[in-house]
Design a protein around this nucleic acid. Structure first.
Lengths: 233, 233
DNA sequence: TTTTAGAGATTGTATAGACAAGTAGCCTAG
DNA sequence: CTAGGCTACTTGTCTATACAATCTCTAAAA
């Protein structure tokens, strides 16, 4: 692992453990240089990551300070799988695999030029605290992953891609809209007609630039909450 | 202006002008070093910003490549004012100032410990293409801005803070939820009862760590769309 | 023809040093 | 007692260099 990554992880752990509470000052660049015996740019890189993630802010002439964290809800600003999310929030979570079928990428994703793109469709329903709250429709491109075999209940698609197939996911583009629930939503989640659905559609890209999958994640709106950190300039 | 900022801006302009179309390769680190007569770390910093913003991706051993851009909709991943947004999207926009009153920060924002926090409440309604789509409730802390005077129709709150008061906005935290429309929403936006509201609540921080304002931005859900770029790792 | 080896290009990580700019605290001159 | 200045500390920007890791392409070898 890289040095700056190690420093970043250790500082983050200390923040989460409460060693540096809200508004506390992190060690200065020079203190980190001495503590880890690295060059200043290396320590700065570690802290820059924390700034990026919204954990700390730097003020010229004063220092680096912890920003109050209450990241309790559903973040859409990282590519994060449902399983990783649930683990982080320590929620009681459960995923039920509904279907795996041969399919094509639906036209809502506006991919390519009307030529049908063969894909494997995976439909799953996700429970938080035993309540069905999310229905995920994944369309995995056959060009990249010809066949999906070992998808057990306990493995996420991202884990499958990364650990078993050796693919590296780089980034995703997501659109968020609010739409009426369709019949499937209402049936699977047991919804009253009036509850809308937050639809998050994603395209996921590999580190070589190829698209690996399209996902439509349908959340019942009354259980949806997203927390966002955004910098200016 | 900084060197890496200048290089970043120039590269971004060239991308937007189509000099580097989709999937095109950007100049390498060394090419940028020669072109701008800077150290490699400086050119890398400029490109790192473009990666951050989702314009390009770097692939080790191959180069830096432009990512297909269709940033057509409402981004929530930047602190961006309505006015800046409308200008960028070239939409016909109009803002109507409804009220400026003395008030307190509402308890939904969970700020402080139940002690009332004095603020100036600004309520505005925003039109896109002559349709009312957003109602903004801003609560500007009196501790930071004692009085709001020169808020004309043509000036945004952010512009007022930054240009007239010399304050520098650093970052914001936003939560996104979907809620039923209240009576005010329905009346001002002329909504049918069944249309929900996307509520974006923000706390905006200055570069010295102080909170300057809380905002509740209420969008009619059937006109709301957000585009998000997110990196993994 | 196919495979292998290597050279060249490109990005990633790390170091050491320099100066600029902003902040805070102390101490002295008035 | 106050105002100003000095100093130490911190972050921001920039340079020059080195080596590692990965990819592409070419040329040589089997």
């Amino acid at each position: 692992m890289n040095k700056y990554q190690i420093i970043h992880d250790e500082l983050l752990k200390e923040i989460n453990d409460g060693k540096y509470p809200n508004n506390a000052m992190l060690p200065s660049d020079f203190a980190l240089m001495n503590r880890y015996h690295v060059a200043r740019e290396t320590s700065r890189k570690a802290v820059a990551m924390l700034v990026d993630e919204g954990y700390v802010m730097r003020i010229k002439g004063r220092g680096t300070f912890v920003i109050n964290q209450n990241r309790y809800s559903f973040p859409i600003s990282h590519v994060e799988s449902y399983r990783e999310l649930a683990a982080r929030l320590k929620l009681n979570e459960r995923t039920q695999l509904l279907t795996i079928t041969d399919s094509e990428v639906p036209s809502v994703f506006e991919y390519g030029d009307d030529t049908p793109v063969p894909a494997t469709a995976v439909v799953r329903i996700r429970y938080l605290d035993n309540e069905p709250v999310i229905i995920d429709h994944d369309y995995v491109l056959k060009d990249v992953v010809p066949e999906i075999k070992k998808l057990s209940q306990s493995v996420s698609l991202f884990e499958l891609f990364e650990q078993q197939l050796g693919l590296v996911i780089s980034y995703a583009k997501k659109t968020i809209t609010v739409e009426p629930a369709n019949a499937t939503d209402r049936q699977l989640m047991g919804l009253a007609e009036s509850i809308p659905i937050v639809v998050i559609r994603s395209e996921t890209f590999l580190n070589d630039g190829r698209i690996i999958s399209f996902t439509e994640s349908r959340h019942r709106a009354d259980r949806f909450k997203s927390v966002e950190f955004s910098r200016r300039h």
